[in-house]
Amino acid sequence: MQKPRISAVAALASLALLTACGTEGGAGGGSSVESDVFVANVRWAFDTLTVDGKKTTAPAGAYVEFAENGRASGNSGCNHFGGEAAVEGDSLTFSLGETTEMACEEPSQSFEALLHKTFDGRFKAVLDGDTLTLTRQDGDTLVLSSQPPAPLKGTKWTVDTLVSAETATSLPAGSEGRAHFVIGADGKVTGNLGCNRFSTTAAVSGSTISFGRVVSTRMLCAPPQMTVEKAMLKVFESRAAYELHVRQLTLTAPDGSGVAASATRVVKD
């Protein structure tokens, strides 16, 4: 399966482009142009999904990313999903492969069911600025917007995944959207561990972040929130490796446990 093409990288954002490449015939000949939709290395946020003429707004956090190796992965607003993708001319083909199976609350559950049913197959792709529209042969339509890469510092990172060695799992039901943190330009870290508010300091060196002493409130919460809090505290104990990809940040403790977080807001000083 053909790999998704690599996007041109703008100075401040990886915006996808429609480009034309072709060959011109000689005297008396015609010309042919093949246009490819460049979609890789950009996070595409789902905006709306229209099925049978009914438009549904996507929940916050629903997105897809197309990798250079022909894989695609994302989040439906609740569960993570993956599959294979290919671009040929102005067509994009996606084959849904795997999903996590966490129970979702409404309206995320209904959107997810529609998305998994619709976002599978061949689409005509039209790019207008930073808006990508995917249309199926039956007329159902997905509208997505490109999102620029987020900086490590000055971004609100909302935790959405727990990491254990090579395994990544969704957050326990009832804990979603609570744990978050911001690393300030001055190295001060503030946020919520999933239950309690906290603060610490961060010193970045290469691909490692060394954290200072964690100061937090001491409220007792339900088990799902406390599970996330324990994972967060493990990461912030002393030192963590970090990996930043577009708008996804992964922090991993020395024992292989960690968390992954998505950029939900770039904080302006």
Rank of each mutant, 00 (worst) to 15 (best):
K3G: 00
I6P: 04
V9E: 05
V9K: 05
A11K: 13
L12R: 03
L17N: 04
G22C: 08
S32P: 04
E34M: 12
F38A: 12
N41H: 12
R43W: 12
W44Y: 11
A45H: 14
F46C: 04
T50V: 03
K54R: 14
T56H: 10
A58G: 05
Y63I: 02
F66R: 12
S73R: 15
N75P: 00
S76G: 12
G77V: 04
H80F: 11
A86K: 14
E88P: 05
D90I: 04
E98C: 00
T99R: 08
E106P: 02
Q109E: 07
S110D: 11
R122N: 12
R122V: 14
K124V: 09
V126Y: 09
D128S: 14
G129L: 09
D130V: 06
T131E: 13
L132F: 06
T141M: 13
Q147L: 15
K153R: 14
L162S: 11
T169I: 09
S170C: 10
F181V: 05
F181E: 00
V182Q: 06
G184R: 11
G184I: 06
G184E: 09
A185F: 07
G187M: 13
V189N: 08
V189I: 13
N192I: 01
L193P: 09
C195F: 11
A202P: 06
A202H: 09
V204M: 14
G206D: 13
V214I: 14
S216Y: 08
C221G: 06
A222R: 14
A231R: 13
M232A: 02
K234I: 05
R239Q: 11
H245Q: 09
V246K: 06
T252H: 07
G258A: 12
